[in-house]
Every structure is written in structure tokens, then in C-alpha cells.
Design a protein around this nucleic acid. Structure first.
Lengths: 296, 296
DNA sequence: GGTAGGTCATAGCCTTGGGCTATGAGTACG
DNA sequence: CGTACTCATAGCCCAAGGCTATGACCTACC
């Protein structure tokens, strides 16, 4: 069994690479030098690779070490995103800047924006409420949150908005599925007539799909699942084609675990908007977050 | 201190979400049910969020739990990529399929391809040699490896090749840097005249840059560093603009930790090619890997 | 050349986190 | 009402990983 590495050791490795010595990295990690030495040795045994060139004047990464450190940095970045976002969800009361977002934005985009906000304004405590699109608007209007992020084209009365991106629902299949080799675009009607793996009714993704299918003859779903990862899992297992937010399957498509099927004749694009109370000027942290989110 | 979560617990959470019960997830993880219970409780305390809805007929993820599980899946995917690639580097002798790649391809693309290859052909043991572009060609010609991946436009005599992607060197700066707000493209001459943070001489990235600057008046580098992450770190700290492979800064640009500066009048694009010995037909695993890498 | 100051590794001790088993409480169903 | 499934709690126990102390090694500098 490929047992997973532990994040502290990966962080330690990256730090050694940057600081040039085990001892200094240990200090940063708040542990004693021998502990760091042991941890790295352990990691080397686990991976079966020499990671450090130890000399009496410090340690530098070997060629293998550099690569591992590079991959480790990616893992750590994802882990920090998780912590940051969880933090924001927890502090959703008693925060300096309160934000509401619908699921897709909250899961895939907000954590990144918050990471950058934290870089620029380390003292701002952000609170994040994750609710459906309608509730986002309500909370902004009620001034329970300063800024909201919603999917969909319509903006309720009384809200100012700015488009901060677009989300495209995509059709994905397992690499072995016949559609993975399609060269011609799939037509909306054919998609609608196919039993699909989709999110449960009530989710934003499902609603968008239902609207797009409104005028088409549609088959019942093959599976209805309550989370994006469940849907992805089913699609990877080859159950049936799945329809999901492009953001949700970005990683899987990039790594080839899922294949996107070209699509035509149906509109599955929705814009993502930042919304705030019309006429109300945004305080500094909110304005910064908006600027970050709006970056092209 | 935001202490990092541990990957086993994250995996456990994802499994609970998929399997619907703590006990079953525990079984998959190879631990007893109470241990799983404790671990999840620990994770909940650490994040300060309720993750599971426990009922006498199973456990389901709460709304917060679904989000955390989504982020966790990303972290786990990155971790698996690391393990997979490390594995391939270790088995570089005594493997069924031996591959050589230059640094950039090896670090950012090969792990993904190998992950997909492993999905399709679980029994193939891959060996990966990471060397410079010239050595890749040499090893392919010497039949030490079956397939190679190189950067650059020229393909040595005796090799067949296929373009599998392009790598663009990009200019990145910290979000606070003046260039981050540039609207007009940066001209090559201005870039060359600026002290930059770059990779050390001898690296592929540096060579590409030197070639592109050949006919220009160029300033000495501000810093020369031996790894992509060191260069990124210096750029993020605001030392100076940095020039790096687009793949290397993908994540940082997406999350806003670095900003890409638009560039004109200079060609920093290089194609990435798969190469193999001309006339030699590829064995099944090599052909599969080539197909995966060639996917648009 | 000797000393000071830096590196890392090894040895041995000790704490604690996380594993296990056993058990109890709660719900569903026949 | 027993059976069968859930999860939580209690108490025990081991080993991983922390610490300190020490030694080997190299460099720099007096």
C-alpha cells in the first residue's frame, strides 16, 4: 500500500531547500535539529530516494530532492487552501469581512482569493457563508454580509454587480468511454436523451442543466448524487457521462482521469458575479477582495 | 499556528463521504471503527467545523463536510501525484517501461501522465530518468529508454517525434509590483534591460532565455537560483520580476500569489516533444503513454 | 595549529497520539 | 422484543517521534 507522506515532513523538506540547512529548517518548524534529521531520513526511506546532499556546511537538495520539493510545494499549497477556507467558514460570525458565496464559487474560487487576500492583509478575519444563490442575494441585501458571489445571469434589484468569471458546465466521461474519442461535438438533444450522472435536484448545477434541457426530450438521470466528488467518482468508474462545473473537473481533465466531451447547440455557460448592496461603498478589505476576484 | 491536517484523516473523510459510514471507511483504511471515529472527531476539532451528520444508520457529510472533502480530494490528488512520480524515479532501473524527461516536463507533466497510465495499466512499472534535453536524446538513441520527452524545437537525427504540448516562459511579479498593473505589453528589450530573478546557467529555462536575449542589450540578473521554487519565492518576496516556465507558476498565477506580465516582441515559447527511436515500434505501454501525453 | 562556530548523525530516554478491544446507546426492521 | 446495523466512550498499550546530550566533521579566524 502506498502509504501517504506526512505534510510536516514535506514542509520541512521544502524549508531545507530554501534555507540551506536542516538546523534552520528545524528552528522554523519549531522542533529540534535531530528530529528534523530523523524526519528527513524517514522520508528518504519512504520514497526510496536520496533527497539531501549533506555537507558540514549545510544541506542542499539533490536533483531528486528538487523535484520532490516541487511536488511537495503543490501539495502544501492545496493543504493551505483547505485550511484557509475552513478557517473562513468557521469564522463566519465575528469576522471583519463577511462574504457569502454559492457552492461552486465557494469551493473552487473563494479559497484562492482568500489566500491572496491574506497575503495582502494578514490581519483581516474573513467569514464565509456557503448558501444557495438566492440566499446570497438576500444576505447581501440584509447587510448580513458585505460581499456575495453568485452564479447565474440575473441580479436581484438593489444589488450592484461585477462579473468575475464564468463557469461552464462540461460533459465528462471516463477515458475508456466511447465518447472520449469523439471528434464531432455532441449535440444538446443527444446529451439530453442520454442517462447521465448528475447532481441532486436543488443544486445550482442541476438547475442550470434543467433549464438548458427545458425544451428538449430528456431521459431520466442514471444517478443523482449529492456532491461533486461523488459524481466525479461515478463518472470515472464508467457509470455514465457526467455533467459538472468545469471548475470541479479541472484537475481530473488536466491529468486525464476524465475526458471532456465537446458540446454544441446548448448553452451551459453561466457567469459568476460579485454582488454588493447598491450605493453602499465597500470597505477596504471588501474592495481588495473584489479587486483580487476581478483579476482577469 | 495553522498546523497542517494529516492526509490519512483527509482520506478517511473522503471515504466516509463516499461510503456513507464511518465503519466502512475504517475498514477500507485498515483500522478499527473507533479509531476512525476518533480521527474524524479530531479533525472536526482541528478545523472547528462539524463535518459529519451521524445517525444510527450511517454518517453523511454536512454542508461544511462536503466542501472540506472537496478540498481534501485536491490535496490527496497532489499527494498521489508526488508518490507516483517518486516511485517512477526510484524504479528507474528494472522497470518495464523506461522513460527519460528533461526537468520541466518531468516535474509538471510526467507525473500526471503516469497517473493516468497507472489507471489504465496498473501492472506497468515505470522508470523515469530526469536529465537534460541532450541526454534525453542520447538515452533514447542508445535504447536505454524507450521514450523521451524534451523541450526545444530541434530533434536530433534518428529520432521520431511528436509535439505533445508547448511551454511558454512567462514573466511574473509579486502582486504589489508596478508591473502587476501594466496594461500594455512589456517589450523584449525592456525585459532584457531589467535585472531579473532567473534560473542558474545550464538549466533549460535559462538557456531558452539567453537565446531569446541574444541580440538584445541585457542587464545582469538580479538573482540566480537553483530551483523553480526558489525563483518563485524570490519573486513573491518582491525581489524582482522572474522568468519561469508557465507550468511552474500555473498554481501561483491562478491563486494570485504571482501576476503574469503580458509580453510582446520576444519569443519565449518552446515546444515539448515526445521522442523515440526512428523505425522502432513502440511496445504497448509506451504507446499508451504516448497517447495519453498527446491528448489535446 | 588551536579554538570557536557552524554543520549533521547517533544514542537513549520519555511522552503521547493513535491504535486496539470491549461495551453501551440509539434506531430500524422483521 | 430480538437482531442487526450504526456510532461513541472507556481503558489499555505500543511505537513513532519528540527531546537532550554528545561526537564527528569542516571552515574560519586568530
Amino acid at each position: 500500500m502506498s502509504t501517504l507522506p506526512d505534510l510536516d515532513s514535506l514542509k520541512l523538506l521544502v524549508d531545507v531547500g530554501e534555507l540551506g540547512s536542516l538546523g534552520q529548517a528545524a528552528k522554523v518548524a519549531g522542533i529540534a535539529q535531530p528530529s528534523a534529521s530523523k524526519r528527513i531520513a524517514h522520508l528518504e526511506r519512504r520514497l526510496g530516494l536520496p533527497l539531501l546532499e549533506r555537507t558540514p556546511r549545510g544541506s542542499t537538495l539533490t536533483a531528486e530532492g528538487k523535484m520532490v520539493a516541487g511536488w511537495a510545494a503543490q501539495v502544501l499549497a492545496a493543504a493551505h487552501e483547505l485550511m484557509r477556507a475552513a478557517q473562513a467558514v468557521r469564522h463566519s460570525e465575528a469576522a471583519h469581512l463577511r462574504v457569502a458565496a454559492s457552492m461552486t464559487v465557494a469551493e473552487y474560487l473563494v479559497p484562492r482569493w482568500l489566500g491572496e487576500l491574506q497575503n495582502r492583509e494578514p490581519d483581516v478575519q474573513v467569514g464565509l457563508d456557503v448558501v444557495n444563490s438566492a440566499d446570497v442575494a438576500a444576505r447581501v441585501l440584509a447587510e448580513e454580509v458585505e460581499l456575495g458571489f453568485v452564479e447565474g445571469p440575473s441580479v436581484p434589484e438593489g444589488l450592484a454587480s461585477r462579473v468575475v468569471g464564468t463557469d461552464r458546465l462540461v460533459v465528462v466521461v471516463a477515458p475508456g468511454h466511447a465518447w472520449a474519442r469523439r471528434r464531432t461535438a455532441l449535440m444538446g438533444a443527444e446529451l439530453a436523451a442520454t442517462p447521465l450522472v448528475v447532481r441532486e435536484p436543488g443544486s445550482g448545477t442541476r438547475e442550470t442543466l434543467d433549464v438548458a434541457f427545458r425544451s428538449l426530450h430528456r431521459a431520466s438521470p442514471r444517478l443523482e448524487l449529492g456532491s461533486n466528488s461523488a459524481v466525479k467518482g461515478a463518472a470515472q468508474a464508467g457509470a455514465a457521462p457526467a455533467v459538472l462545473s468545469g471548475y470541479a473537473v479541472e484537475a481530473e481533465v488536466a491529468t486525464g482521469r476524465l475526458v471532456e466531451v465537446p458540446l454544441a447547440g446548448i448553452n451551459l455557460v453561466r457567469s459568476l458575479r460579485a454582488v454588493w448592496r447598491r450605493g453602499r461603498s465597500l470597505a477596504a478589505p471588501a474592495a481588495t477582495l473584489l479587486a483580487i476576484a476581478s483579476r482577469p
